[in-house]
Every structure is written in structure tokens, then in C-alpha cells.
């Protein structure tokens, strides 16, 4: 197991390094950062002054090296717009996003996996049909619309939950449901498909022939094998939630990192965008790594490959 983890860790670091380079250079591909920063009305001299001031006149590799050196120490420079260190700016926003993402994926897994198992145990039963309906509805409904419906019902009409903000746990209830429900259908369908396949396998029959009860057959023998593809999917969705929950963050005015990324792109706030892209990518890399390790723990055959 340890050699596998080390190997994966090495791979993850390589990917992280590549991603950092791409995220740094992407911004130079979108045009001259100095003239973008100076504004449309600036004179040529002003642009040159800014170029020197921000160090854009140096070779790109040198700039990258310095940026990376600072970044690994948690220093992402100063936001052009807020005139604050990017790290402080992001730290606040990231707390909100991470809380939301963790709640969202937990909600999705806690609803999708049991529902998927229940649907697979009795295919074509009423439980299966209800689960199918829920997942199709989840896939068909746009998040922003579902969010608005929840706000209308639970915040405005019933007054149970606050419609926007991020100050208490109650602010997170509706965003969690919206975000979780977005991720749920795919997890549920994959759990169901995996369970159906595994329940037909010979080793499940062996488990029954040994005299194992249904609960043991389902959860010890079947689910462990069926959940493997779900782990990989959940990791990707988790990364997505931490980086891309812009719609949900906007509707509920939860000013998280996704929302900040969107604002910063609009404002040409280079250091912030670079930092956010790097952090979002790191989330993906970390979750993929964790998913690989978890899968290797679940399925010993993966450890040797």
C-alpha cells in the first residue's frame, strides 16, 4: 500500500507543477497584462511604467519562478482591485466555499448512496422508480431555478431560513441542498448500476452460500465493490463544488471563492485569478489523490497496478 501511495503522491506533485505553470501562463495568453492593467486611456509611457513596476518586462520563466516560490509560501501577491494581500482575501472566501462544498458533497453522498442501493436491491420496484424520478428531476432542473424556488418557499413564504448571507449555519441549509442535489443524480445512478452488476456476480452467490444474511451480503460484500467508481466520481464533483459553485454562491449571496473568481476575472485582477486557479486545481489534485488511495484501500487489485 505504501509504495502505491508514494507513487500516486509523486504523480500528483508532477501534475500540480504542470498545472501551476499553465495557470500562470494562461493569463499572458489573454493579452498584455500591463496594458490591461493600465486601462484603455493610458499612454504608452504609463503602460511601460506599469510593465516595469509589476515586473512584466522580465522573461516569463523568471516571473513564473518567482511567483511559484512565493505561492508555495502562501504569498500570492496583492490584489490589484482590493489592494489587499490575495491570501487574506482568499482565506475568508475559501472558508465559505469549503464549508458549502463539504456540506454539499456530504448531503449528495448521504442521499444518493442509500437510494442507489435501495433501487438496486429491488430493480423496477416503486423505490427504484421514485429514485429514478428524483434523479431525473435533479438532472433536469437548473440549479439557479431550484435555488429560487427554495428561497420563495422556505425563506419568503414560510420564513424558516434566511434567503441570503453566510453568517450562521442556517444560511447554509438551502445552498447545501441545491448544490448537493446537483451532484446527487450521477452518484445515485452510478451506485445503482454498480450494485446491480456486483449483486449478479459469483462472489455474492458465494457469500449467500456461506450463510451470510442479506445485510451482510449488501454492505460487506457488495457495496465495497460497487462503490469504487462512485469514489472517483465524488472526488471530481467535490473539486467541482469547491471551484465552480458560482451560480449557487451568487443566488444565495454567499460570497465564496467561486464568486470571487468570477468577479476577479471581470476586473482583470490578475494575482487573484492566478491564485484561485492554482488553488482550485490543487483541490482537484488532492481529491483525485485521496480517491485513488481510498480506491486502492477498497480494491486490493489497484494497489499492484
Amino acid at each position: 500500500m505504501l509504495p502505491f501511495i508514494l507513487k500516486r503522491l509523486g504523480l500528483a506533485l508532477l501534475v500540480a507543477f504542470t498545472v501551476s505553470f499553465i495557470s500562470f501562463s494562461l493569463l499572458f495568453l489573454s493579452g498584455d497584462p500591463a496594458s490591461a492593467l493600465a486601462g484603455e486611456t493610458a499612454s504608452g509611457e504609463d503602460v511601460e511604467a506599469i510593465r516595469v513596476l509589476y515586473g512584466f518586462d522580465r522573461p516569463m520563466l523568471v516571473q513564473y519562478g518567482e511567483w511559484l516560490f512565493q505561492a508555495v509560501q502562501g504569498n500570492f501577491g496583492e490584489s490589484y482591485y482590493f489592494k489587499l494581500p490575495v491570501s487574506t482575501l482568499i482565506a475568508d472566501r475559501l472558508t465559505v466555499t469549503m464549508t458549502l462544498g463539504l456540506c454539499g458533497i456530504t448531503f449528495a453522498l448521504l442521499t444518493a448512496v442509500p437510494l442507489g442501493v435501495a433501487a438496486a436491491v429491488r430493480p423496477n420496484s416503486i423505490v427504484d422508480r421514485v429514485a429514478l424520478f428524483i434523479s431525473v428531476a435533479g438532472q433536469a432542473m437548473p440549479s439557479f431555478w431550484f435555488a429560487l424556488i427554495l428561497i420563495v418557499v422556505f425563506a419568503i413564504q414560510l420564513g424558516w431560513l434566511p434567503p441570503s448571507g453566510a453568517s450562521t449555519w442556517r444560511h447554509f441549509v438551502m445552498p447545501t441542498i441545491v448544490l448537493g442535489y446537483y451532484a446527487m443524480p450521477a452518484i445515485m445512478r452510478l451506485t445503482r448500476a454498480g450494485m446491480l452488476e456486483v449483486l449478479n456476480s459469483d462472489y455474492i452467490r458465494t457469500a449467500r452460500a456461506k450463510g451470510a444474511g442479506e445485510g451482510r451480503v449488501m454492505f460487506k460484500h457488495a457495496l465495497r465493490n460497487a462503490i469504487i467508481p462512485v469514489v472517483s466520481l465524488a472526488a471530481v464533483q467535490m473539486g467541482f463544488m469547491l471551484g465552480g459553485s458560482i451560480v449557487v454562491e451568487s443566488v444565495f449571496a454567499l460570497h465564496g471563492a467561486g464568486y470571487l473568481a468570477w468577479e476577479s476575472i471581470a476586473r482583470n485582477d490578475l494575482p487573484t485569478v492566478q491564485a484561485l486557479i492554482l488553488i482550485f486545481s490543487m483541490f482537484y489534485i488532492i481529491f483525485t489523490f485521496l480517491a485513488d488511495v481510498l480506491n486502492a484501500w477498497l480494491d486490493p487489485r489497484m494497489r499492484s497496478s
Binding site: 462472489y203 457469500a207 477498497l298 480494491d299 486490493p300
Partner: peptide, 9 residues
């Protein structure tokens, strides 16, 4: 089928 009748996990 001995190849598939034991649980791989």
C-alpha cells in the same frame, strides 16, 4: 468459477 467466486476485496 474459482476466478470469480471469491470476493476480490
Amino acid at each position: 468459477e474459482p476466478m470469480t467466486s471469491l470476493n476480490p476485496a
